[in-house]
Design a protein around this nucleic acid. Structure first.
Lengths: 114, 114
DNA sequence: AGACTGTTTAGCAGATTAGCTAAATTGCTA
DNA sequence: TAGCAATTTAGCTAATCTGCTAAACAGTCT
């Protein structure tokens, strides 16, 4: 089984096109919730909830800046979860660069275990 | 926009843990629907539906063998869709091997500014 | 304090999803 | 043809998801 801890939340988060687009938008750097919402046709509260899902999945981090809340991409987390899965299903086609998580050799050094 | 055509179906298909596990199981080679179903606690019809979702997403292919239907992993499709997304969000962390799909113009800089 | 901006939380409606059982389909074999 | 095994399709229910509007919360500024 390749599902480490809560990778499930990550894949569920990636299931929605709006959320995937948010992640892509965040590729350019931090963005405030309002800025992100402004890029979509849906309401701000809806975007806020998407951000909540992404944050719960660990795919983004938030930081308060005065009035606003800035969101940033958690690239490592995304690459780790998805990469771990890909390396379990089609390891020939993909290669991960930053492997701070160790694909198969052994578990994690941190107490990721129960 | 990195979403090519119906990548959406792929990510939705990956959102379910059972379906991800099916893909991993298929890594070992072709399996009949019954063999796959036997690995899960859920009913055969439920597994059949999962297989349908995976097939519609293009992640697996099916082939009839007498009484049974054998399913096989469509690795290229999986690597292409997911890889395309990863290379759009965190290109530094991953490297794709089989690039038969075209990552996009290398000079990609978010110009969606207002 | 009061007003204003930015963002999230609450509560609701409509759509989708996953699981189940029963029944239909497909192919093999006696 | 009847019978059996392997799978899928149909139909139903319960849970989850997404979007919306209204309201609440947080922070800034005069």
């Amino acid at each position: 089984m390749t599902e480490s801890h809560d990778d499930s939340g990550v894949f569920k988060a990636l299931a929605d096109p709006t959320r995937r687009q948010i992640l892509e938008d965040l590729r350019g750097g931090e963005l405030a919730a309002g800025q992100i919402a402004g890029r979509f046709a849906i309401s701000a509260p809806s975007v806020s909830r998407h951000l909540g899902v992404l944050r719960t999945a660990g795919l983004i981090t938030e930081r308060r800046d005065g009035n606003r809340i800035l969101y940033a991409l958690a690239e490592d987390r995304l690459a780790a979860c998805v990469g771990r899965f890909l390396s379990a299903v089609c390891p020939e086609q993909i290669v991960l660069r930053h492997t701070k998580w160790r694909p198969d050799t052994r578990a994690d050094e941190k107490g990721t275990e129960a």
